[in-house]
Simulated scan of single mutants.
Amino acid sequence: MNKRIQTLLGASLVALILGLAPLCAVAQEMEPINVNSADAELLAELPGIGETRAAAIIEDREAKGPYESAEDLTRVSGIGDATVEGLADQVTF
């Protein structure tokens, strides 16, 4: 009988963990990153950016001024329309 209780408790624990998994995913959503104030490390976390493009974004904003929209990121070599579309809801200005 002790084995049955252990099995039941184990199954209940697994069900509880699986039931809470969607809540963890919601808690891990990132806040949008402000491309006019973020450092290279933070910019590199954006999909399709990485370290090299992050440095290029900072260099470009220092040379040409702040970005006003996601489309302005196309000023940076290697960032095209597809990348901008993927970033639209993950960046602010």
Rank of each mutant, 00 (worst) to 15 (best):
I49S: 01
R53D: 01
R75N: 09
F93D: 00
E29L: 14
V84Q: 04
N2F: 13
E45I: 08
L42Q: 01
L23Y: 12
A25I: 12
P66S: 11
A25F: 14
L42H: 03
A38M: 10
A56F: 02
A27P: 12
D81W: 10
E71K: 04
A88M: 11
S12I: 04
T74P: 03
L20Y: 05
L23F: 15
P22K: 09
A54D: 01
R61P: 01
M30Y: 04
L8M: 09
L16E: 02
K64W: 13
P47W: 08
D39H: 05
G48W: 00
Q28P: 08
K64C: 11
Q6K: 12
M1R: 10
Q90K: 15
L18S: 09
K3W: 14
L16S: 08
N2V: 11
A54F: 01
I58P: 00
A82G: 10
D72T: 06
L18D: 09
P66R: 05
V91T: 02
N36M: 02
E31W: 13
G48L: 04
R75V: 06
Q90Y: 10
I58G: 03
N34W: 02
G19C: 08
E62F: 10
M1E: 09
I49E: 00
L8W: 04
G19W: 04
I79R: 04
P22S: 09
S77N: 15
Q28H: 14
Q90R: 15
A55F: 01
I17C: 05
D60W: 07
E41R: 13
E62I: 07
E51T: 15
G78E: 06
N2C: 08
D89Y: 08
A38D: 03
E68P: 01
N36F: 02
V26W: 10
S12H: 07
G10S: 09
N34T: 02
A38N: 03
A21V: 13
G86A: 08
R53K: 15
V14L: 06
D39N: 11
E68K: 08
A70Q: 01
D81A: 15
M30V: 10
E71L: 09
N36D: 13
I57W: 00
N2Q: 11
L43V: 06
E45G: 07
I79Q: 02
M1P: 08
L43H: 00
T74A: 06
S77Q: 15
V84F: 06
G50P: 00
G48V: 02
E85Q: 15
S37D: 08
T92H: 02
I49N: 00
G10C: 05
I17V: 14
D39M: 05
R4D: 10
A15C: 12
A82W: 05
A63T: 14
L42V: 05
G10M: 07
L23E: 07
A54S: 06
A11K: 05
M1S: 14
V26S: 14
L18A: 13
N2E: 12
T7C: 04
L73R: 01
D81V: 15
I57D: 00
A15P: 02
E85D: 14
K64L: 10
R61D: 03
T83G: 06
A82Q: 13
I33L: 12
S37L: 12
Q6P: 02
L43W: 00
N36H: 08
D60C: 12
G78D: 08
L42E: 03
R61W: 03
A27D: 11
